[in-house]
Design a protein around this nucleic acid. Structure first.
Lengths: 106, 106
DNA sequence: TTCAATGTTGCAAAGTTTGGAAACAATTGT
DNA sequence: ACAATTGTTTCCAAACTTTGCAACATTGAA
């Protein structure tokens, strides 16, 4: 079906899509500590470098990370760490609500 | 490949997955204003009620909305409006960064 | 009870995402 | 120039998502 949904919503959904995979959340959390090259992240994820590279390029397209070549390595770093704080906060809200519902199911 | 990624990251990714579709973002934005039934949302989305219902049940599973039957209707309401504020804020950060990069590409 | 209205669930088709392997590109050092 | 190292892209298959349709479920009213 053709969508009457305004573009604004698609753009926002795109941002969330970039966050909608465990490997990518893991990458962002690792990059919080310090920048890392593709090969290091691939090893930590237990993925081929090609897969890690693809996750990273998705994150870069969404604006969450930036890359810089250092010799044969390509180092990725987190652009906006506060985005992750917000994720944690959103998560906290959701979990708290779920807890409330379980304790007191009217 | 089997994943050595801790469950913590999968849980967080699940939360983002629930937000990773334009229809679901649109629904959350509509529910901000006031609660709505499935049929109203389906009409606004331009989707069959079955599809709307499925989007809503995803959002409910993630904890973003709650439902309550009112006669033959089922009314959905937003649980944590602040989640959307955070989304807007995350988006703002990303966009600002992107703008900076365009203006001043070292 | 039967009907009408609203929602949900099961299914199949179409589309999208993911990951590994191999080919290709870029950089450094010999 | 060549080889070694690291990263990216392409191709393919498997897994997952989304949608409409049809069947079923729930509620309220005649």
């Amino acid at each position: 079906m053709d969508t009457p949904i305004p573009r604004k919503y698609s753009l926002r959904a795109e941002m969330f899509k970039a966050l909608a995979h465990p490997a990518r959340i893991y990458i962002l959390d690792k990059l919080r500590e310090r920048p890392r090259c593709v090969c290091e992240l691939a090893a930590e994820l237990g993925l081929e470098k090609s897969a890690a590279s693809k996750h990273l390029s998705l994150l870069r397209a969404a604006g969450f990370v930036e890359d810089e070549r250092r010799g044969t390595l390509v180092e990725y770093r987190l652009v906006a760490p506060c985005v992750l704080d917000m994720a944690a906060c959103a998560e906290g809200t959701i979990l708290e609500n779920r807890r409330k519902r379980l304790e007191m199911p009217e």
